[in-house]
């Protein structure tokens, strides 16, 4: 049985349709990624799955429970790491986790044990009794992950888990997720608009304007593209083009100072080309398709890389200057 099942899910906000009839399944133990630009409907979908938002139509279930009718059972089976930090800066790391443990009905002894385990998993055991206010962005994120797994959820939701973090912390967080998956068999549903992150997922769905455009493993999606792009520079591009056409029966495009060629197995064809050609080649390069190419070919646009929430900077300004509550 799937851990997440979504059927023809629709969510409208007035005249705007944020989620426009999406359907997908996530199997137990899978890391499933929702990839798309801002405003594509990723966070809305997460909010519905986390029971924070009711769907306009369609159904969603998590851990076998319906997100509307059985909201309480869903809440018990999930852990969430929201896009914006949701820690209390005026409490210590330990107190934040204890708060969470009690909200999820753990008793004191169990809570203490799990808090220690979770803190050491994310490498914050030495900071247990420090106020969260003093934590860096990366430490806060790690603490939120520790909190998210405290109630041993079946499904862990992560909304843009690495947004705004430095590359080192980003890698660290990916290591946690990989370790967690190996040790607990947890199902992870995450959203991202970082293409390189989507590659860590077992399966991804590309979402744009509230619809799933395509889904599959990162490899499958890339394989659906034409293939690798080869660029060969030569002093005589025309001659090179003619020779390739004649000897290899391919259709290269002449560009400034060379040719480009799209082939299925670039890594095998490139050496063969170089061996077989008599025209003098100055330089070669090969690019494999990225998920951005997939996105580009399907939607005709690039995924914007930064600038998530228009109020983000304002809120983080307020957070910095007003500290706690």
């Amino acid at each position: 049985m799937s851990n997440i099942t979504v059927n023809s899910l629709v969510r409208k906000f007035g005249p705007v349709t944020a989620v426009d009839g999406i359907s997908f399944n996530v199997e137990p133990g899978e890391v499933f990624g929702f990839l798309g630009p801002n405003g594509a409907g990723k966070s809305t979908t997460i909010s519905i799955l986390c029971t924070l938002l009711a769907p306009t139509s369609g159904t969603a279930s998590v851990g076998g429970f319906d997100c509307v009718r059985d909201a309480d059972a869903v809440r018990r089976s999930i852990g969430i790491i929201f896009q914006d930090p949701t820690l209390d800066n005026g409490l210590t790391a330990y107190e934040n986790l204890l708060f969470h443990a009690y909200l999820y009905g753990l008793d004191r002894t169990k809570a203490k044990k799990r808090i220690d385990d979770a803190l050491s998993l994310v490498g914050l055991d030495g900071r247990k009794n420090e106020l969260v206010r003093k934590f860096s962005g990366g430490m806060k994120r790690r603490l939120e992950i520790a909190r998210g797994i405290l109630n041993y959820p079946k499904v862990l939701f992560m909304d843009e888990p690495t947004i705004g973090l430095d590359p080192q912390t980003r890698n660290l967080i990916w290591e946690f997720i990989a370790e967690l998956k190996k040790n607990t068999g947890i199902t992870v549903f995450m959203t991202t608009h970082y293409l390189e992150e989507a590659e860590f997922c077992d399966r991804i769905a590309i979402i744009d304007l509230g619809r799933i455009i395509v889904s599959g493993t990162p490899g499958e999606l890339k394989a659906g593209l034409q293939g690798d792009t080869l660029k060969l520079s030569a002093a005589d591009p025309k001659g090179l083009e003619a020779e390739i056409r004649e000897k290899f029966g391919m259709e290269p495009k002449v560009t400034d100072g060379g040719i480009t060629l799209t082939v299925k197995q670039g890594d095998e064809i490139l050496p063969a080309l170089i061996r077989g050609l008599s025209t003098k080649i100055i330089a070669v390069s090969m690019t494999s398709p990225t998920l951005n190419d997939v996105f580009l070919s399907l939607t005709g646009k690039n995924i914007r890389e930064e600038g998530s929430d228009p109020y983000g900077p304002m809120r983080s300004y307020a957070r910095k200057n007003h500290g706690g509550h």
């Binding site: 924070l52 999930i78 914006d84 209390d88």
Partner: peptide, 20 residues
């Protein structure tokens, strides 16, 4: 009024998604 602060700083979400 701390509810408004909690909402502004996101902590209210932590409370609202809990099974209570």
């Amino acid at each position: 009024i701390s509810i408004v602060w909690d909402r502004e700083f996101g902590f209210l979400k932590e409370i609202l998604v809990a099974p209570i």
